[in-house]
Structures are given as C-alpha cells and as structure tokens.
Computed example of a mutant assay.
Amino acid sequence: MTKLIIQIPCLNEAETLPTTLAALPRRVEGVDTVEFLVIDDGSSDGTAQVARQWGVHHIVSHRRNRGLAAAFRSGVDRALAEGADIIVNTDGDGQYEGADIAALCQPIIRGQADIVIGDRGVADNAHFSAPKRMMQRVGSAVVQGLAGTNVSDAVSGFRAISRDAAQRINITTEFSYTTDMLIQAGRKKMAIATVPVRTHAAARPSRLFKSIPRFIMHTGITMARAFTAYKPLRAFVGTGSLIAFIGLLPILRFLWFYAQGDGGGHIQSLVIGGALLVLGTLVAIMGMVADLVAANRKLLEENLARTRRLEDQLAAIHRASREAGPETGSALKRKDAA
C-alpha cells in the first residue's frame, strides 16, 4: 500500500490555509492513501486550530518560530514516522496549484526519480517580478553547478520526495532547505526530475526573507556551506592554491630585483609573499583534514539511514500488531524475533 503525505509548513496561515487545503487532491493515481500534515511553526493566529477544523490528519506544532528549514525537517520526520512512501511539500499561502501534485508524484511512483521539483517556469512566470526572475535564474544556475544537476528552478519549494531519499537527506541549514537538499541529492547521486507546475499570484509578501539582498546573502551562505561540506578538498585546496599563487608573485618580484643587485630595498615583497605562501599551504592542509571529516560524515549518514530503516521495520511490526489484535500481534513479534 502506497501512502502519500502532503506536508504544509505554516506561519500564521489561518486565513489562507483553508483555500490551500481545499485545492489539495484527495486521490492520486498510483497512491492508495493520501493524508495531510500541517507544521505550525509558532503561529499566533490559530493556524493549528484551523487545520484541525479542516480535518488535517497530522499536525506538528512548534512552541516558537524556528524557521522554514526546521519546519520542513519536522514535517519530514513526522511523515516518515507515519509511514509515508512519498512526501510532497507545498506552501500554505496557495502559491502552488494543488492539482499538480498528481503530476509531481508520477516520476517517483514509476520508479524514475528520488526527488521531483515543481518547475514554475521562472523565465516567463507572470507572477514573478523581473528582479525575482533574474535572481531565480542566477541562483538555479549556481546550484546546478554545485550539485551537478539540471534543475532550472532550484529554489522551488513545491517538490516530492521518495521515502528512501527523505531518509538519506539531512538538512543542516537554518534558513531554507531547498538549495541544501539539491546539493546533497546531487552529490549523493540521487535521481532528480522536474515537472512543470502552475502557480498563483502571491496572497501576501514572503515571510521567508524581508529583502532581496538578505535572501541572496543567506542563500549564498547556505550554498557555500553545503558545497564545502560535500567537496571540501576542492573548496579548500583550490582556495589555498590561489592564495599560494598570489604569494609567489611578490617573491618573484623580490628575486628579480635581487638578481639586479637591488634586493635590499624589496625585503617587504619577500615577507608578504612568504606569508601568503604559508597561508595558502595551511588552507590546503585544512582541506585535506576536512576531506577526512567528510568521509567520516558519509559513514555516519549511512548508519543514520540504516537506523531509520530499522525503525521503519519496528514501526511496521507494531502497526501490524495493533491491527491484528493481542494474540496475533504476539505471534508476529515472536516470528520477527526468530
């Protein structure tokens, strides 16, 4: 039995949430069960109560606002605990067309993808301003290069994730999960697909960021952290080599004047060049150490994925035990122990 859970991270979405929920599909081809999950990220307007009134199956509540990335992580953890085979993430402001969730899930249902990104057609989307379209295109191009993927709308929050992919992805950023997830998925050789999706005009200004410069800064930091974590050797050795090369220039300058018999007046070039050369070497060595740490992190992530699979098996046994009754449940447990 295939279960789809549609999760909606929310911050003060009591007004727009009913419209979003009404547009979500109740049935999807290839899926046996469709359930809804709302993550109330410290709302003060009764978002969780509205979700209950609309019959949302699962609700996760944060006592205070922890940010979109934390809300996304909480939703994925709860969806996995509830036995989701496919997790779809959408926004609570009604930006995305709920009917497109069916198309979003199909590549996963057919076994063609681990993660599916809803492509909003940024280049000609009438709901985006010209600066936003340009920013999205540039950001997506950078993510494509860092992740080694071909995703034209890297920051789209409308995406579907298979259970296996959700268990292997570990979001580390505190700002937005979108680029972090793609860089991780690309480096872990997951199959990533895109499908065109429809969007609606924004019902309110974004609560994720207060200004474009702030968004660019935080997204840049997120991408740099993710790339450094998964490609430390390239990041640090490349930077160290550049610093060392720059340090060679003043040293060569000193040697030139020294060969001309005028080295005494250019000692400062030798000092500066030597300092840069040492700094570049130290940065390169840091890259080697970071590469060893990255290799250890891969082992830890693999162990974490295995632990999650074991938890899935135990949860499945407990669910079967509850459904089958006390006597049959005990027999199931004995059989599994054997």
Rank of each mutant, 00 (worst) to 15 (best):
K210H: 05
V237P: 03
F158S: 07
T16R: 04
L300V: 01
G94V: 12
G247C: 05
T47D: 13
N170V: 15
Y96M: 09
G186Y: 05
G274E: 02
T90Q: 11
A79R: 10
I212K: 01
L279T: 12
A259G: 10
R163A: 10
S206F: 01
I221D: 03
A331W: 14
G265S: 04
E82T: 09
G325K: 04
L314A: 02
A99S: 14
F128N: 15
T219L: 13
L279W: 08
P131G: 09
D114H: 15
H58M: 01
M134Q: 14
Q268F: 02
D41H: 12
E29L: 07
T178Q: 07
G67W: 00
P250E: 06
L146S: 09
L104D: 12
A316P: 03
D124K: 14
Q184P: 01
L270Y: 00
R63C: 00
R204N: 03
M217Q: 08
H318K: 03
M288I: 13
V138N: 08
D41G: 07
Q136G: 13
E97H: 14
G118D: 10
A337Y: 13
T33M: 12
T20I: 02
D91Y: 15
L310V: 05
G67V: 01
L248A: 15
R319K: 06
A275W: 07
A84R: 09
R26K: 06
D114R: 15
F257K: 05
V138S: 10
G46M: 13
K132I: 14
K3E: 02
L300R: 06
T178Y: 01
P25K: 08
A126Y: 08
E97P: 10
L80K: 06
